[in-house]
């Protein structure tokens, strides 16, 4: 486990060469190596061609320590433009060093530059670790309730 110095970490836009590290990092947490999924996310969010879409990584002395993906969406669910964070992850051994906060702050800065004043995310109820992270950054319950059902076959 490498200890991480917060000051040595730089948050920047993802590059194609970072993708393998991102895939490994995600697999460490989810247990699944989803190469095709991440290649598609890179194509959609990582190239910087689409305004409002962000795919950022935190790069430390030992490589990629975390990433965040976010997007500004207009009028989805009837809501005015707001920023959505739909993926954030920090290497387990690099946690508690402020990297997650820096990634979140960076993606929120990107939203602010586009005039967005609200940021949202969606999490599983039992994902206590990440729920606590967002709560500690000041996030509270939104005005929306997620619903789902099983479809009849």
């Amino acid at each position: 486990m490498n200890r991480v110095r917060d000051a040595a970490v730089r948050v920047r836009q993802v590059r194609q060469a970072d993708l393998e590290a991102v895939i490994v990092l995600d697999a460490q947490v989810t247990g699944l190596k989803k190469a095709d999924y991440w290649a598609e996310l890179y194509r959609r969010y990582g190239t910087g061609r689409r305004r409002g879409r962000q795919f950022l990584v935190a790069e430390g002395e030992h490589g990629i320590e975390g990433f965040v993906i976010g997007e500004v969406r207009d009028w989805e669910f009837g809501s005015p433009a707001c920023g959505w964070v739909f993926a954030i992850n920090v290497r387990p051994g690099a946690r508690q060093a402020g990297i997650g906060s820096r990634l979140l702050e960076a993606v929120c800065d990107g939203f602010r530059k586009l005039g967005v004043t609200t940021v949202r995310t969606l999490l599983a109820r039992d994902n206590n670790l990440v729920l606590s992270f967002f709560r500690a950054r000041g996030m509270m319950a939104a005005q929306f309730i997620p619903l789902e059902m099983e479809l009849d076959r």
Partner: peptide
């Protein structure tokens, strides 16, 4: 109940103190 429990599980003492300061 499940939503309430998830909320109470995700809010730490530190987070509550920040909320109180706000």
């Amino acid at each position: 109940d499940e939503i309430a429990k998830a909320t109470f599980r995700s809010i730490t003492v530190d987070t509550m103190l920040k909320l109180a300061r706000r």
